[in-house]
Structure formats: structure tokens, C-alpha cells
Amino acid sequence: MTFKLIINGKTLKGETTTEAVDAATAEKVFKQYANDNGLDGEWTYDDATKTFTITE
């Protein structure tokens, strides 16, 4: 399955995708991506669209 991450950061904005077997796996990938890029914010997830959002 394809999951999307929408980034609404103070300095970084955009989106990225990952292929994962489930939402929990995708969340780990996206949280590592956010950590690697210095993002810290509030996370939301929409199961209907398989989309995570981080807002700083």
C-alpha cells in the first residue's frame, strides 16, 4: 500500500510517499524521516486517504 506524508513545517513544506504493509510501518518510516529532517510537530492520520500530516 502507498501512504503519503504531508509536511507543513516552519521551514520544510511538501509531501512524500512510502510503500508499507500497514499504517504502523508507514508511521515509523515517516517519523524517522521527520526526525532526520529536524521536524517536530503534531501528527494526524486519515485512514480513508492513507495520509499522515505533520504540522509544526
Results as ranks from 00 to 15, higher is better:
M1K: 13
M1N: 11
M1W: 15
M1D: 10
M1V: 14
T2K: 11
T2S: 06
T2I: 13
T2M: 13
T2P: 05
F3V: 01
F3D: 00
F3C: 01
K4Y: 13
K4W: 13
L5I: 03
L5M: 05
L5A: 02
I6A: 04
I6C: 06
I6E: 04
I6K: 07
I6W: 05
I7K: 02
N8T: 07
N8M: 13
N8G: 04
N8F: 12
G9T: 15
G9W: 08
G9H: 11
K10M: 13
K10L: 12
K10I: 13
K10W: 09
T11V: 09
T11H: 15
T11K: 14
T11Q: 15
T11I: 14
T11N: 12
L12K: 08
L12T: 12
K13G: 07
K13L: 08
K13Q: 11
K13S: 09
K13V: 12
K13M: 10
K13W: 10
K13A: 07
G14V: 15
G14Y: 15
G14C: 11
E15H: 11
E15N: 06
E15M: 12
T16P: 03
T16S: 07
T16N: 05
T16F: 13
T17D: 05
T17L: 12
T18F: 11
T18V: 14
T18Q: 05
T18K: 04
T18A: 07
T18R: 05
E19Y: 15
E19N: 10
A20P: 01
A20H: 03
V21I: 14
V21P: 14
D22S: 06
D22K: 03
D22V: 03
D22L: 04
A23I: 11
A24T: 13
A24E: 10
A24D: 10
A24R: 10
A24Q: 12
A24G: 09
A24I: 10
A24N: 08
A24L: 12
T25Y: 08
A26D: 00
E27Q: 11
K28F: 12
K28D: 06
V29W: 14
V29F: 15
V29P: 01
F30V: 01
F30P: 00
K31R: 14
K31L: 08
K31G: 04
Q32M: 11
Q32T: 12
Q32H: 08
Q32S: 08
Y33E: 02
Y33D: 02
Y33L: 06
Y33P: 00
A34F: 03
A34R: 02
N35E: 13
N35H: 14
D36H: 07
D36S: 09
D36F: 08
N37Y: 12
N37M: 15
N37K: 14
N37H: 15
G38F: 11
L39A: 04
L39Q: 03
L39W: 12
L39Y: 10
D40S: 14
D40L: 15
G41R: 01
G41W: 08
E42V: 14
E42W: 11
W43G: 01
T44G: 09
T44H: 11
Y45T: 01
Y45D: 00
Y45N: 01
Y45V: 02
D46T: 05
D46A: 04
D46W: 04
D46M: 04
D46C: 07
D46Q: 05
D46L: 04
D46P: 00
D47K: 09
D47Y: 07
D47M: 10
D47N: 09
A48I: 15
A48Y: 11
T49E: 06
T49V: 06
T49G: 04
T49K: 07
K50A: 07
K50T: 04
T51V: 07
T51M: 04
T51F: 03
F52N: 00
F52W: 07
T53Y: 09
I54N: 01
I54V: 12
T55W: 10
T55Y: 08
T55S: 08
T55G: 04
T55E: 07
E56R: 04
E56C: 07
E56S: 07
E56G: 05
